[in-house]
Design a protein around this nucleic acid. Structure first.
Length: 727
RNA sequence: GCUCGGGUGGCGGAACGGCAGACGCGCUGGCCUUAGGAGCCAGUGCCCGCAAGGGCGUGGGAGUUCGAGUCUCCCCCCGAGCACCA
């Protein structure tokens, strides 16, 4: 078990209540521990960890150093969301409709130097491996979506002065229709491509875009804006001179930060061209009607020697043709970006780098880890745009580890997703102070047998963990590269049809329910109210059914423990014995496949059968208590003792076995259909022959009526289940 | 717009292509009670019918099949994720 309490959310909470997180977090963890124990959660508390513990984050910093050494960590200037009122960096999730979630101030973007991990180097592997893992389809889809692979080509458009503008396109087949180019406003070529008379206009537009925040730029107004640079480039396919623009619908972060615009075949380009009256080379059919945009199953027209080819074939040939002229390269592009791990905050592990004027960025030697987060009072972020740690010269002024000269610590801390990207590797090895994870322990326990989490982790946590595991494998620290070969996402428990949230006030606090109903009732109700992987609606009324069930079990066990009216050790009535074996079979399977709701329903059915037959004997109830143990551990443990147990805990007992023959014994009910409609039911011994069943069926009055003397044309017989007479 | 889930009684939800609605909540009637917000028994998809019985039913429409909630195609609605990704 572990607790992950670094990060902006913990820090913001600490700021809100005015207490240093270093004091606050241990108190909150105590509460979690108490709730988890009270709930009946069974964890190996000997192997507890906390990501805020220096003994843990020492190895988080070690992890950073491994990536740094492998050239998978680098620093670059990147935009962050900045709230000018709160004077702080915001995560994307903290920006709501372009405004700060706390003070509603419009958010701006600021450019800061930040540390990144080259997760994009692993994009192909992260995507490919998904074919081989046992994960739920929904999670796979989210992750594939996030990685966002696109196949296409990079094409080069040259200016008269010989400058090359490289664009990425998934539709090289449409290059003959490219009538202008658009660069992202931040594109490095903008400066040199801007004509003198356009300089002021371009500058103004760049400033306007920069004032907008990162989120609003992406999801905000869809009205297209942009300006002409005053220069031209040559379409490599047609040789035409076409104008070069900048517009913020082109993003510097994707592809090359530049596109060829094909207004006839791309809706966005079409909108832009219409708005700025740019030429649209509309493709038409023989009747002169405009052809639809986007379509990938069309045939090339207005494309010189490539006319008549399918789009797919045309794309291939055109790229090959342009490649001969060195102006095209086939290219696979990914949506995923490198992982920015810098946080200009206090509450996280300091990034273990020391800057030296002579040596540049120098990694902290491993023997000097951990770089301790200093206990400071003024941890509130300020308007400087740097971490609060940057106010503490006594902390950041250190000698350079390489040359001994004056050095300065990195004052940013790392993303909390880095903390959680490797915790499962630490779990079995918590007692080792001199290594992050012990090889022998790791071999025994990892990779994770069965990983369960919410879909909110489908992209970030799961992607980062997979990436880190791959890196560690490539460096020889691990023998596997997928940390979670089997993963299931639990659903969300909602309340009153909505996600629980403090602001909405529809929160279920476990303590109150446990007090009223008991821990076993509460946890079992959570399992019963819907399919585990879909979640469900928590309604107070539903909980009584589970409570009543557990009371019935309690009563049965105490009656069975008393003097036996039917005599101890007696065989169970046949119907009860059969149901027992069916129940063990069902609960065993459903528990393994996480179908907890139907496992509980099966136990309820079994209790109903015992009660119908007045068969509440030890032989009937003891196996039930074993089945119940993972679901209602407190009650099961007590009832096991009441029933004489084996002298020890119910959890030391073997899981009950079932006998397939006994589960199947007895009569079966066979459905009789006439022309596919149910007309009768027959009680027959299991294994009856088709002839017997048909004879019995035709003798049935209800069946006769619908056969009505007609010849039976066809008989469909499913052993022990159904017969269908087609007349 | 793209990608995933979903759509079944009054409600939460069950159903290897083979008896739709298991289990639970709620509701109705009865028993027991000074009492019932406890417990026990019976009933409870909708329509017709005193009943026996019959008809109709898994968002809508087509199809495959002896047989479709389940498979195929088209459409509608709800939820989630991504989203000016070229």
């Amino acid at each position: 078990i572990g607790f992950d309490a670094f990060g902006i959310h913990s820090e913001n909470y600490a700021l809100a209540v005015g207490t240093n997180p270093a004091q606050l977090i241990p108190r909150n963890i105590d509460t979690f521990r108490r709730q988890l124990r009270r709930f009946g959660g069974m964890f190996d508390w000997r192997h507890e960890l906390s990501t805020t513990d220096p003994a843990y984050y020492k190895w988080t910093q070690w992890l950073f150093l491994q990536l740094f050494k492998a050239n998978l960590a680098y620093k670059k200037r990147a935009a962050v969301n900045w709230c000018p009122k709160d004077k702080t960096v915001l995560a994307n999730e903290q920006v709501i409709n372009g405004r700060c979630e706390r003070c509603d101030t419009p958010v701006e973007q600021r450019l800061l130097d930040q540390w990144f991990f080259r997760i994009t180097d692993y994009a192909e592997r992260l995507l490919r491996n998904l074919d081989a893992v046992d994960w739920s389809e929904s999670t796979l889809a989210l992750q594939r979506n996030w990685i966002g692979r696109s196949e296409g080509a990079e094409l080069v458009f040259k200016t008269p002065a010989g400058q090359a503008i490289t664009v990425f396109t998934t539709r090289p087949d449409t290059v003959f229709g490219a009538t202008y180019l658009v660069l992202a406003p931040e594109h490095p070529l903008v400066e040199t491509l801007t004509a003198g008379e356009q300089r002021a206009t371009v500058r103004a537009y760049q400033r306007e875009v920069q004032a907008r925040d990162v989120v609003a730029r992406r999801v905000g107004e869809k009205v297209k804006t942009g300006v002409f640079l005053g220069s031209y480039a040559r379409n490599p396919a047609t040789g035409e001179s076409i104008p070069v623009w900048i517009a913020d619908y082109v993003l510097m972060e994707y592809g090359t930060g530049a596109i060829m615009a094909v207004p006839a075949h791309d809706d966005r380009d079409h909108e832009f061209a219409t708005q700025f009256r740019l030429p649209i080379r509309q493709a038409v059919n023989v009747a002169g009607e405009a052809l639809p945009s986007v379509s990938e199953d069309g045939v090339l027209v207005n494309s010189g020697q490539f006319d008549g080819l399918s789009c797919r074939e045309g794309a291939k040939r055109i790229v090959a043709w342009l490649a001969e002229q060195h102006v095209a390269t086939p290219k696979v592009q990914y949506r995923i970006h490198d992982w920015c791990i810098s946080r200009q905050r206090y509450w996280g592990p300091p990034i273990p780098i020391i800057y030296c004027d002579r040596c540049g960025p120098v990694p902290v030697p491993e023997r000097d880890l951990p770089v301790l987060l200093p206990p400071i009072e003024d941890f509130r972020p300020d308007d400087s745009g740097v971490s609060p740690l940057a106010r503490h010269t006594e902390w950041y002024n250190v000698p350079c580890p390489q040359c001994g000269g004056a050095g300065r610590r990195e004052t940013d801390v790392s993303d909390t997703f880095l903390d959680s990207s490797w915790y499962y590797l630490r779990y079995p090895s918590t007692e080792f102070a001199d290594r992050p994870f012990d090889p022998a322990r790791t071999k025994t326990w990892l990779p994770v047998t069965s990983y369960i989490g919410g879909n909110e982790h489908a992209v970030l946590h799961l992607l980062y963990s997979r990436f880190i595991t791959m890196v560690l494998k490539d460096q020889g620290h691990l023998a596997f590269e997928e940390p979670f070969p089997k993963l299931r996402a639990h659903g969300l428990i909602v309340k009153d049809g909505a996600k629980m949230s403090k602001s909405r006030g529809n929160v279920v606090i476990p303590d109150a329910y446990i007090k009223q109903w008991g821990a076993d009732t509460f946890r079992m109700y959570l399992m019963f109210l819907g399919p585990f992987q879909e979640g469900g609606d928590f309604r107070d009324e539903g909980i009584t059914g589970v409570r009543r069930f557990l009371e019935k079990v309690w009563t049965l066990a105490h009656e069975a423990a008393g003097p036996e009216p039917h005599g101890q050790g007696d065989a169970l009535p046949e119907a009860v014995e059969r149901k027992l074996h069916q129940t063990v079979r069902k609960v065993t399977g459903d528990t393994a496949s996480l179908n907890y709701n139907t496992a509980i329903a099966a136990m309820m059915e079994y209790v109903n059968v015992i009660r119908e037959h007045g068969a509440g004997t030890r032989n009937a109830v003891r196996p039930l208590v074993l089945l119940l143990a993972p679901y209602a551990p407190h009650l099961a443990e007590e009832l096991w003792t009441v029933l004489g147990g084996g002298g020890g805990s119910v959890f030391d007992e073997r899981w009950p076995a079932y006998d397939e023959r006994l589960a199947q014994a007895g009569d079966v009910e066979i459905a009789v259909q006439v022309n596919g409609k149910l007309r009768a039911r027959l009680q027959l011994p299991r294994g009856a022959s088709q002839d017997d069943v048909v004879t019995r069926a035709l003798a049935d009055a209800g069946v006769k009526k619908f056969v009505d003397g007609n010849p039976v044309k066809k008989i469909v017989y499913v052993q022990d289940r159904l017969v269908n007479l087609v007349v």
